Amino acid sequence: MWMMSNLKLQETVPFAVMVAMEGCTIILTIWAKSVMTNYGMSPFVFVVYTHSLSSLFLLLSSFLFRCCSSRGDSTQQSVFTWALFVRCFPLGFTGITVSQNLGFLGLSYSSPILVCAMGLMIPSFSFLLSISLRRAKLDWRSSSFQAKVSGTLITIIGAIVVELYKGEYIRKSSVSSSYWYINQLQLRVEKLGLIFSSEKEHWVVGGLLLAASTLSVSVWNIIQMGTMKLYPQVEVMEVVTFYSLLGTIQSAMLSLFLERNPSAWKLKLNGELLLIVLTAIFGGLVRSRVQHWCMNIKGPYYVPLFKPFGIVFATIFGVSLSANSLCYGSVMGAVITGMGYFIIIWGQIREDEKHDQDHCVDENLESSSERKVPLLQEENV
């Protein structure tokens, strides 16, 4: 009985934690959208302040972790080498400077649900990049390759729908509930000015910026995978700290050209400072640590499976807690994009399973040949 309850707990806790992570991400995204729209906070300033604080938290935590782990190992060497700097510089450029600045600029022009939909295109862009860079083979007979192709097409169709088609309103901005407590809640939310969506004429611009941000994240994924293969002995969080610091410096230099208004750097005591602190803590420390913990327990594909939950939360919050309207076209396009996302993930899982099976077969054949013909090998030597 105790074993059964322990197994249920092992299944329930990671699930609940990942769902909560996606919900917190959407809440912070809607909050950032509202602050940018209501108080005119610059997205470039927001990125610099957020990642400066996040890099500080990461640097302190990495330093403490390294000090604790190196007490019994006097031979441990520093990882901050010139070669690692060369690898981490493009990581910071693609993962923070380009993706974050374009992402929050696109959010200021669009909606959190469009952010969710475009974020689901990361596997599609990664697949297209792997094909163009000849990192993946064109095997049309493989079911995994077919799944990736069909999932990519479905994802692109969904992104086009959410980008160009609005449809009827699910909820208009005016409060129309007949229940008094819901009516009062929505009135209070609207007084707070929680903005969910921008005007229609800015929607396409925001979508294009978010698509470019997603493409940058896909490039970052490829560089990150190559970096961890070259430096398997380096802790993941140390690499994250290094490229986060470099990306913050790059973003600060970029913002000097893009945001020349000195008053934009002055934080107001109206929620901007609290939003920056919470976003830095959540994005820099909490989310990365929790995702790393879940992947160690449940495998590498457990965390990506929860990304479409953002669409559910964005729809719920957009209908109930935002001061703007939400349209059927946006939700429908996001759902289509999520379907394509799951198909691509399924194809990647099938491909990895086949690769592991082939690797096991090769190892068995190699060990079998070594046992059968040891004398022939000795004669060749």
Rank of each mutant, 00 (worst) to 15 (best):
W293E: 04
W346Y: 15
Y301V: 02
G310R: 10
I170L: 13
V189Q: 07
S218D: 06
L107M: 08
K137P: 02
L53Q: 04
V373Y: 15
F93H: 06
Q100C: 02
L129D: 04
S52F: 12
K298I: 09
V115R: 09
F46P: 09
G103L: 00
R171I: 00
V35P: 10
V303I: 08
L376P: 00
G40P: 03
R141M: 09
Q250I: 10
G338W: 13
C116V: 05
M21K: 03
V161A: 02
G72I: 00
S255N: 07
V47K: 02
R171L: 02
F89W: 08
V335T: 15
Q348G: 12
S325R: 13
N6E: 13
I122D: 10
R135W: 01
Y302T: 01
S177Q: 00
K372W: 00
S74T: 01
M21V: 06
L133W: 07
G329P: 09
E363L: 11
S216A: 05
D358Y: 05
L267S: 01
Y302V: 06
G338E: 09
S244L: 08
L91R: 03
I281P: 08
F63T: 04
Q146Y: 06
G151S: 03
E11A: 07
E201T: 01
Q184Y: 03
L321S: 12
G193K: 13
I30Q: 12
E353C: 12
L210F: 02
D139F: 03
L164V: 11
R371P: 04
S142T: 09
V161L: 10
S42Y: 13
Y169H: 15
W140V: 05
F125N: 01
L138C: 05
M121A: 09
M21T: 02
V189K: 10
F125L: 14
D73A: 06
F44G: 07
G106K: 09
I345F: 14
M332F: 15
I222S: 08
S251P: 04
G338A: 15
I113M: 09
G206L: 08
M228T: 15
S368I: 06
V381N: 14
V381C: 07
S244Q: 11
E238G: 14
R171M: 10
F125C: 11
F57R: 06
I160Q: 10
Y179G: 01
F317S: 09
Q250Y: 03
I281N: 01
S42M: 01
H202Q: 05
R171W: 05
P112V: 11
S108C: 00
G106R: 10
V204Y: 06
R287K: 14
Q10T: 03
V239N: 13
A32Y: 00
L258W: 05
Y341R: 11
F313I: 04
L215V: 13
Y302I: 10
V277S: 11
R135H: 10
S368F: 08
L105C: 04
G340H: 09
E190Y: 09
T75Q: 00
L28T: 12
V204F: 11
K229A: 12
S177M: 11
H292E: 07
W140C: 02
Q250D: 13
K172E: 06
V234Q: 12
T214A: 06
F309W: 04
